[in-house]
Design a protein around this nucleic acid. Structure first.
Length: 216
DNA sequence: CACCAGGAATGTA
DNA sequence: TACATTCATGGT
């Protein structure tokens, strides 16, 4: 006879979080000095290694182009040169221009923060270059709203550990948001810890050997 | 040399 | 709706 231990999805997701938190500790995300910098970094890191984003942000700071209002004003070809290390610089220069002019055109982040989360999300999604993950990253880390960010690593985690059949963005986001307390601090650390896990252990290895979640 | 990185837009069926 | 292609630099 088997000893069958049934976990609720809530308990399982919290257990995964506890394992990761015990292993890696607090991650102190988002790695930026200002809210404006979070928005800029969210666009620059699209399908790009963070080390390359750091070079781009370093260039922007040296050039004095680190506030969203600076992005609006700066010459586009200069902007492309500054962010070149982050890759896709033609697209990303355009994307930065569009999100910066959108936010500044609405009175800045402080004015937009008066909107409720659902409305704010749809507004962000209407901006060229802002998809679901970028919008949710901005909502969680810049606006401090309890929104779970789903990235490629999150999908891989859910897939490998068979936490859900539905591997779509919305399906995975619902999995976390319907089974966990809607807590900004929890979602902040959870997403950051998943990225940390991937960087340390699971680059491309199918079985994650040595990974702290191996026993799950 | 190939492959990947904290995606999104666009086009096709 | 579900895939395929394109965008581009720097590390492994």
């Amino acid at each position: 006879m088997f000893l069958v231990i049934k976990f609720t999805m809530r308990e399982l997701l919290l257990e995964i979080f506890n394992i990761l938190y015990k292993e890696f500790g607090k991650q102190h995300w988002w790695p930026a000095e200002t809210k404006d910098e979070i928005v800029i970094g969210a666009v620059l890191t699209q399908n790009t290694a963070w080390s390359n984003v750091e070079r781009a942000i370093s260039n922007l700071k040296k050039a004095g182009v680190i506030r969203l209002k600076d992005i609006v004003c700066v010459d586009e070809s200069l902007l492309k040169e500054l962010i070149k290390p982050a890759g896709f610089f033609n697209q990303k220069a355009l994307y930065l221009k569009s999100i910066a002019s959108f936010i500044e055109g609405h009175g800045g982040l402080s004015s937009l923060s008066k909107q409720d989360t659902h409305k704010l999300r749809s507004m962000l999604l209407s901006v060229k270059g802002v998809g679901k993950e970028t919008a949710d990253s901005i909502l969680l880390y810049a606006f401090e709203r309890p929104v779970f960010v789903v990235d490629a690593y999150t999908k891989r985690l859910v897939s490998r550990h068979r936490l859900s059949e539905d591997l779509s963005y919305d399906g995975i986001q619902r999995l976390f948001m319907e089974n966990l307390p809607l807590d900004v601090g929890l979602f902040n650390e959870y997403h950051a810890l998943i990225v940390k896990l991937a960087k340390v252990y699971c680059k491309k290895k199918p079985l994650c050997s040595g990974c702290p979640l191996e026993r799950l």
